[in-house]
Design a binder for these strands. Structure first.
Lengths: 201, 201, 201, 201
DNA sequence: TATGAATGAGCCTTCATTCAT
DNA sequence: CATGAATGAAGGCTCATTCAT
């Protein structure tokens, strides 16, 4: 069973190991598919014995949830820290970190997209659904504030293009995530005077 | 086994039945997921006995392929008939029929997106992969001809937003597929004098 | 269902057809195995539609029984006609027609041997078992009368070697069935003065 | 899956268990038939859970192959150790150990005979076919050396009678395997002066 | 913690058989 | 007589999970 150690020192090591395993599972699932990957296969790909996995995760579906949490939580945290006063600038910053997050979590994204119907219908998936809705709402509001002509359509369009980035982005490609993000923002935002446009990190 | 009748009259009925079943399977898979739907469940949802399905499709994966074919082939056929001389107008027409096709085949699209990894890696999926690549190429070329600033990025962006439409579009919603398509085109195309803009069907 | 016609003329044609089908089934089963051959496969190999077979035989196991009957009955009939007064001569004649029967019914024999356990244990197989026992008894008695030293062992030995002939005999081989039969008899019989030895047909 | 342990100690136990299971399967198949015995039935007869069988054998047909190997390999090994200088004596010794092997492996033999067509035609059965051919060749050569009049026919006859022994021999019967073997040899060998005849163990 | 043998439910698929045409 | 679509039971096999070591 998945028993988390109580001693702080061991607990830190345990949590780190668990995070690594979840990340590894995301990679394997993205490549082979969640349902197509058996637990023995997964365990072997992670360098573990069949049953050892269960020391860290209570089951296969929980593992999937953990992958989605590992994707959503840091994204929401980073978004919460945005503090640009100008809405257009905040939007651009948001899309930048969003695209960056997507390409840094390509595997998680691919798994997330494949398992759409479980996430939408599953009983244990409420928290993930809530996270996604929070992000959606936040994005749509920001698009309105930024003066986009049709915020609702822009919202759907952005969701589509940014998330889809996971499917074609290659780390050794010719564009940086930031360039891609700026390209996306330029599509939905009315032309902005360069003075307002942030310089990027 | 899936034996197609030789008599033309019976063959027509057989083919029609098969198409219906494939469409029905797309609906069921979109809702419950391909792997989560067992063959008995599927057969029952289609109003068939467990084994009767195999008169029309030789196996579960072939059924998935049939769903993708039912999605891709008519789309490519409709695209091939585009004959607008002006590239921008042709692009708009393309996106219009594309969006229309996507919302008319929502179930197929959802299944298509969920099973991305099988399609990309599976041995029997070459023809589907080829269809997708043909469409990709065609779209990117057209974007270039239409004078889009960054055709490659626009291409990825359009793919993302149009395909994603399947996930949020509701038939009783406030926008028609054509309005959505025009909204997408307006995002990627430089402003067009209204005179050139086609009126729609 | 297997409905035998009542009109004598049609009945003869029906019976002939049935015999042909049973013979054909023996050939197919000998080659591919009884359990490994599905009814659709068999029907196709016989040039029939899937269900047409059931006009002649009520089921797959009955078909197997019919094959065994087609093997045993004519053999017993031919054996019953033996009338050589000298036991040794009668034994030789028996083995000759037996070997001839085996090589003429190679397929039946191979099926018969493969399905030994069904024949021994199956409920509907009593008549076949009875036929076999009748033949066994008859053979052993004759061996005793012919003055073989150890009739019981010779009986088992003959059964083994003659039946096994079905597995290696080739019609284009260098030996005739009669030569083979004489070879077998010479093994179990004490040397016989040539005067008694029959000349063969 | 059938994963053989790497640790020597556990591997020995695993191999022993596997051998037992294969032997048990031979018994069950001999009694009920290979195709007539379902995997759950077999597993229950062996005292295992349905899926546990697959820790030791990768599939039902592999199990059949394992049974045939368990039959052929030790026989060939024992035959290879024969060292009687006199051919006739060597033949007698061969038949003795052969008959002994057959009656000790009655179940294996019965399965082997029933599944003749799979062995002859199956793709994975080459090694078994090779073993059988090696034995055949060896036997025929030895018959020639021993001065049998018609070595080829004697070879087929011996194969038939010895193998057939599995079908009628009963452990509590009145003859020992050695007596049976000697009876067989006396059939095919010209009368031998008792001085040469070995005494038996 | 780590392991991997054991489990039984559940999967996809095949099959013998029926019956409307 | 002939056909082949339809069926549901049963088959072989896989899998997520457990637990003794």
């Amino acid at each position: 069973m998945a028993t988390r150690p109580t001693r702080p020192a061991q607990r830190a090591r345990y949590d780190a190991r668990r995070d690594d395993l979840v990340r590894g599972a995301a990679r394997v699932f993205a490549e082979r598919g969640y349902d197509q990957t058996s637990i023995p296969e997964l365990a072997e790909a992670l360098g573990l014995g069949t049953g050892s996995l269960y020391h860290y995760v209570p089951g296969k579906e929980q593992l999937l949830i953990a992958i989605c949490d590992q994707l959503m939580e840091p994204l929401l945290a980073r978004v919460a820290e945005l503090d640009q006063p100008d809405p257009a600038a905040r939007l651009r910053a948001l899309v930048r970190l969003w695209v960056a997050h997507v390409v840094e979590h390509r595997d998680h994204m691919l798994v997330f997209q494949q398992e759409r119907h479980v996430i939408e219908h599953g009983a244990q998936w409420k928290s993930v659904r809530t996270s996604r809705k929070r992000f959606d709402r936040l994005l749509e509001d920001l698009l309105g504030e930024a003066g986009v002509a049709d915020p609702q359509l822009a919202h759907w369009a952005l969701l589509g293009m940014v998330n889809h980035t996971a499917q074609w982005f290659r780390p050794r490609g010719s564009r940086t995530p930031q360039e891609i993000a700026d390209g996306y923002v330029d599509l939905v935002l009315p032309p902005t005077p360069p003075s307002v446009r942030p310089a990027g990190p």
